[in-house]
Amino acid sequence: MKIFKLAAAAATGLALLAGTAMADDKPKVGLIMKSLANEFFQNMMAGAEAHQEKRGDYELLAVGMQNETDFESQINAVENFITQGVDAIVVAPADSRAMVRPLKKAMEAGIVVVNFDVALDEDAKKQQGIELAFVGPDNRGGAKLAGDALGKKLGEGGKVVIIEGNPGADNANQRRMGFEDSVAEYKLDLLDSRTAHWETEEANTVFSNMLTAHPDIQGVMAANDSMAIGVVKALESAGRTDIMVVGFDNIPAVGPMIEDGRMLATVDQFGTDMAANAIDLALEVVGGGGELKGWVKTPIELVAAQ
């Protein structure tokens, strides 16, 4: 039974390979995204598709997920890509530990693997004995850019709170640590730090309550722009114009807020291009370029009013 299954899988794999070889020599890139319910990844996906159309010299197979924590379907996607015999897998892991093993399998099958968006766990990589470069923004550094902008405005002793992303999520942790770096550097007074699960309504509620508990808040660091919007709305209802807000992601909805001063700044990590850039790097390796090493940082930029 098991043997039969293996044989069947091998057969389809071979058939696929043969098929592609006969069709044309365009390399195949498997792109594994996180939740497409998330605006950020939705845009990134659109960016990757546009990129494929522009370059035209590779085939793109993209897979998304149901939600942020659905790493099971990511693992399945890796296995399917191995079976389909892609040349490269470009992956934004949903879990920095769980994805290491399946990706190791892909590497053993001779597939070029590029890890972007969230870095795989160093210890887990060591344990599996693989080396894998990470292509992506520095979430912590980015958060620190935003935090520094706030710190500069407030000066030493400025009273701030942090609105965190999902507890346990890697980028949420990185961004929180980035904010905390700014707090330390500018000697800010961190009054409270709470999660609003990346969500506008919850951020609105949670922040309103924080503001009641600490009416003397001067600045807010939100780990994404959706939550920053909720904070801005809470400030409007409370009639407070003296509190400064920074966010992260630079989604279109915060553009007007930064322009009219309701938000101080946000951070653009050029998410739209991130997958496309990772694909470029992967194709370079497939085309015979040198291996990637360490952390290939992608650009980040502070967005503030002119």
Partner: peptide
């Protein structure tokens, strides 16, 4: 109420 209060519509609202 959600829209009026937050002035946005988010497809991931209400989880």
């Amino acid at each position: 109420v959600y829209m009026a209060r937050l002035n946005i519509s988010s497809p991931i609202a209400g989880i």
